[in-house]
Nucleic acid binder design. Structure first.
Lengths: 197, 197
DNA sequence: GTCTATACCAGGATAGAC
DNA sequence: GTCTATCCTGGTATAGAC
């Protein structure tokens, strides 16, 4: 298989996935039809089916792209310097997410789909697990640096506290998607004030 | 309109809604088809369309039933005696929910649908708002009783802390629906340990 | 490789008999 | 009021020409 053709193929798949993402943003995760994706991409049905086996394959690609960006952010978190304090770390992550996604409804829809779609579920499980792990690692480092805890103590505390930070992030997503009067700043102020330090 | 007929009609609608709930539990919120509901109810298509204008009306009725039970629990929370401590209150609520619903996936699916369905969204907004209010009221009372705060101080603190308790509840729902290895007890232990007292 | 046209299917809703 | 049979729409996927 010639090298150029492989690259072309990958670029084309990417192009289709990007178009699908735009369609999904406009119409919703499951309401976006192949016709929408076709129109958005400017390509034809036949062309698209040359690169993807079907709609679900496209949807999974899109979902992977959405959470892939999140994972990068998350795993960069523990490496940031200067390290943001725990009260800020949820804010930083949520702001990055909003910049990247525009809004959070698409994530809530993904979660809903994931309940019945095994592939999406596996994706969500993986990402949530990694997010929790990244929080734990960040918190562990923070407690070492700021409170002088020994590494093992700090890690135990981090693992223990991480679920609450994960909860604050997930609830941000849900509330920002569903509450008309949701105010990100008020939410972050109230929640971070009561997170452990 | 004769009285008996009205009651009959209401009972029939209820019967259909119950059947729909069973279908939704088995198949998922949007995957459940009219054929499923028809089969589950033992009635015929024609009969059902005599009581509901269409599938979406049935779905909205089902959703209302699901969250209606939640609201009762929630508003009973502040009136409980003896009052459970903050570390227990999330647990109590989540256990009630699990008993009533069996699992939480159905709620996550509802949230996902609510992103694009205005009626479901209104329902979700209402319930989340009330849940937050009930937490605030409970916390206010708690701080008055246990810490001897003045009512206005206690209420301010309650309003301030409520979003974090709401977050803990929402995240319980999401994680329990999506993480294969989710352990309710471990989650509750970790989260409640770090909630404010 | 890509297009157009179309086959095919699932699912919601209705018509008309009883 | 209720049932059966059927219509119709919308949506995915494919066939065949270029």
């Amino acid at each position: 298989m010639p090298r150029v053709s492989e690259e072309y193929r990958a670029a084309r798949r990417r192009e289709i996935a990007d178009a699908a993402l735009r369609a999904v943003r406009r119409k919703g995760f499951q309401a976006a039809s192949m016709a929408d994706i076709i129109a958005e991409s400017g390509m034809s049905a036949g062309a698209i089916y040359g690169y993807f086996a079907g709609k679900s394959e496209i949807v999974h690609e899109v979902a992977g792209g959405i959470v892939g960006g999140r994972l990068d952010d998350v795993e960069r978190l523990a490496a940031t310097d200067p390290m943001p304090p725990p009260s800020e770390v949820v804010r930083v992550l949520m702001q990055g997410m909003l910049e990247d996604l525009g809004e959070t409804g698409i994530l809530v829809q993904m979660w809903g789909e994931a309940v019945t779609d095994p592939a999406l579920r596996a994706l969500a499980t993986d990402v949530l697990g990694r997010l929790r792990g990244a929080y734990a690692q960040y918190l562990s480092l923070w407690h070492q640096r700021e409170h002088g805890l020994a590494p093992d103590e700090a890690l135990a505390l981090g693992v223990d506290q991480a679920p609450l930070f994960l909860a604050a992030s997930q609830a941000f997503v849900v509330q920002s998607a569903l509450l008309d009067d949701f105010d990100a700043e008020v939410y972050l102020a109230r929640v971070t004030r009561h997170l452990p330090r």
